[in-house]
Simulated scan of single mutants.
Amino acid sequence: MTAQLEATQVASTQLDKNTIRRRIAWRVAQEMNDGDIVNLGIGLPTLVANEVDKDVELLLQAENGLLGIDSLALEQQIDLDLVNAGGQHIIAIEGACYFNSADSFAIIRGGHVDATVLGALQVDKYGNLANWIIPGKMVPGMGGAMDLVVGAKRVIVAMEHTVKGKPKLLQKCTLPLTATGQVDLIITEIGVFNITQQGMELTELAPEFSIEEVQMATEADLIISPHLITMPTPH
């Protein structure tokens, strides 16, 4: 654990908070394809809307009942009646569709969402996800996460690699699970990780870090892809 703490301290001193969050959101945006219907979870995932290339035609969905999010609203653009599922003010594209929450979840449960991007407290090498509660702490509930992770065709976790010096990519989750075996891809400021039948595979490595540093900051035993590349970052 001492080695892990040293590695995470290296990570925290090399990148500031804004750089970390934008890097993750930008890299997630590169996973989006023309015609996709994508749900962005609360927190860091909402930043992905600001990073999607304008040439990529997406329909971003909010489970509170909107298909057609453009981006987070700037102060001068705020419409008090227009928010995402996390209560953040947003801008809608021309032709956006509004409906009630029941219809929104029918879209999700019916398998019509191509990808969902969620934050996480923990993810393990089996693709298990814990992202809704730390025992003993008050939370409003699981929300739509349990529907999204089983209803979406692809589950992408966007999160910082560690929290308070502790790894979030584990051999096995210790917190109550949101779902089992549903995570496909994990993107952090340090790298990109695929969940495979063999375990957690490192496919992209951020330029500031070595394989050894990533492994020290990760509890799960990593499989190093034979096609490992340098993780692209925003300019």
Rank of each mutant, 00 (worst) to 15 (best):
G127A: 06
G165M: 05
Y126G: 05
V150C: 14
Q182S: 12
V163M: 14
E204R: 07
V214E: 10
L169R: 15
K168I: 00
Q198D: 15
A152Y: 08
E189Q: 15
K168H: 11
A120G: 05
A120F: 05
G144Y: 13
A145L: 04
M142Y: 07
E208S: 08
M159C: 13
F209Q: 06
G165A: 09
G151S: 09
L148T: 06
A120N: 00
A206N: 12
T162S: 12
T174D: 13
K172W: 08
E160T: 07
W132G: 03
L177Q: 02
L121S: 08
K137E: 07
Q122K: 02
A206I: 07
V192R: 11
K125C: 00
E213K: 13
E204L: 03
G141E: 00
I134T: 14
L185C: 13
G151A: 08
I195L: 15
G141D: 02
P176Y: 05
E208M: 11
E204H: 10
T203P: 07
A120L: 12
P140I: 00
G151V: 04
E201M: 07
L205S: 11
E208G: 05
K125W: 03
L169F: 12
M138K: 08
E212M: 04
A152E: 06
E189K: 13
L177T: 02
P207K: 03
T162H: 14
L148Q: 02
G144H: 15
R154N: 03
T203C: 04
E212R: 13
H161F: 00
T162Q: 13
V155T: 01
A206Q: 08
A152F: 12
F209W: 13
T178G: 11
V192F: 13
G119C: 03
T203R: 01
K137Q: 12
G143S: 01
G141P: 06
M142F: 06
L121W: 04
T174C: 15
V139W: 04
P207N: 09
A152C: 07
A120Y: 06
V155S: 05
K168F: 11
G165E: 04
Q182R: 14
E208K: 09
D124R: 10
A152H: 03
F193R: 14
I190H: 15
G181S: 11
C173V: 15
K166C: 10
V163F: 14
L129Q: 02
G136S: 10
R154C: 10
C173G: 09
C173A: 14
P135V: 06
I133N: 09
K125E: 04
A130L: 10
Q197L: 04
Q197A: 12
D124I: 00
K166S: 13
K166G: 02
E160M: 09
G143E: 01
I211W: 11
E189G: 10
K137I: 09
V183K: 04
W132T: 05
P135T: 03
D147L: 09
T174L: 15
W132A: 04
G199W: 01
D147E: 04
M146D: 06
K172I: 00
W132I: 01
P140Y: 07
K137D: 08
I195V: 15
Q182N: 10
V163A: 13
F193M: 13
Q122F: 02
T178S: 14
V157L: 08
G191A: 11
T180L: 12
E208P: 01
Q198A: 10
Q171N: 09
